[in-house]
């Protein structure tokens, strides 16, 4: 998977989790940019990303992820496409 494919899939997941079709992700998108992305919704988001890419984030990654770019890096390193 290249970064473009990962970002495209992540965009679908974000739109689904936050129920907002207008979300457009960039590598710099963070919780500040998406109103509903709080610590609680972050758990559901992580669960959805883990399911889609058949992978597991570590607790450090879940807690310390700063933006979508960091999430995409981890997914590219360990994730598998699952469409």
């Amino acid at each position: 998977m290249n970064r473009e494919q990962v970002m495209e899939r992540l965009t679908e997941i974000f739109r689904d989790v936050f129920d907002d079709e207008s979300i457009v992700l960039t590598v710099n998108t963070s919780a500040k940019d998406i109103e509903d992305w709080d610590s609680l919704e972050h758990i559901n988001l992580i669960a959805a990303v883990e399911k889609a890419f058949r992978m597991r984030f570590t607790m450090k990654e879940v807690s310390g992820m700063k933006n979508v770019g960091e999430m995409a890096d981890i997914v590219m390193a360990r994730g598998k496409a699952n469409r």
């Binding site: 609680l40 758990i43 559901n44 992580i46 807690s63």
Partner: peptide
């Protein structure tokens, strides 16, 4: 709790309600 407990999967399941 947000940083050290909330990310912990409860009974191996990642679910916001269980974590909450």
């Amino acid at each position: 709790f947000r940083d050290y407990l909330l990310p912990l999967p409860v009974f191996g399941i990642r679910n916001k309600y269980l974590s909450l």
